[in-house]
Amino acid sequence: MFKLLKYSLYDIVKSRFAILYTIFMILVAVSIYQVSEDMSKVSLSLLNIMLMIVPLIAAVFATTHFFNNLEFTELMLAQPVKRRDVFLSQVLAVVIMLSAAIVIGFGIPMILWGADSTVLTLLGIGIALSVVFAGLAFLASVLTRDKAKAIGISLSFWIYFSLIYDGFVLYLIYSFADYPLEKTTLGLVFFNPVDLGRIIMLMQLDISALMGYTGAFFQNFFGSAKGILLSSAMMLLWMLWPLGVAMRVFRKKDF
């Protein structure tokens, strides 16, 4: 297992993409820190990166990695190692690389210019979303045989969660405006990891607006221990289930 992981990681680092991604993150973080003087503005700008770019790159990278390494995977499967280990080593390698890129990319500027709890939460959310979208990408990859198709599916996951889903929620809220929708919207949020991450951040950034009439309801929920526990549990579930399903498929897949 560790040997497999070691080789996979070695492979990823060699692919140069990892280094490019890290450099990209550093550049983004540095430029944001340079432009805005205020911590809350820094976290605002970073929020968009974390919610949009990070999932996109995680999805695309995980898919391409899976297919680029397909031959290596097939070779490994011919060896007397567990299929589970082969799969997990691939997944872990990708997740470690994506997280490392975020931590190094944002960590260095943070050490230089300081950070607060908001920015640290943001980092956590970025890592969680990387895992979620890597998981979804692996799921897409094991379900198809074609690289292009798999990338297509991963991208549609991304578009769905970051755009279409919110549109749907907005439409729903608009159509049923006459009804009390607080609990419904709260429930809907749990079915989208991007929204979940975004709202955890909202609780820290837009506290004043959320103290408004309806916002207070969300604030009460997400501010309470129960809410924090439930939302982290839900995020964890989002990180685990695509990978779980993907592993199940992978174990039975006929290569």
């Binding site: 929020l47 968009n48 919610l51 949009m52 970051s162 755009l163 919110d166 549109g167 929620v169 907005l170 809220i173 608009y174 405006a177 929708l181 607080e182 919207t185 709260l186 949020v189 991007v194 929204d195 975004r198 709202i199 951040m201 909202l202 950034l205 837009d206 607006a209 959320l210 408004g212 009439y213 309806t214 916002g215 969300f218």
Partner: peptide, 13 residues
């Protein structure tokens, strides 16, 4: 629609 505030800062908004 006050409950729409939950969508604030989403990409779509």
């Amino acid at each position: 629609i006050p409950s729409a505030v939950i969508l604030w800062r989403s990409f779509m908004v």
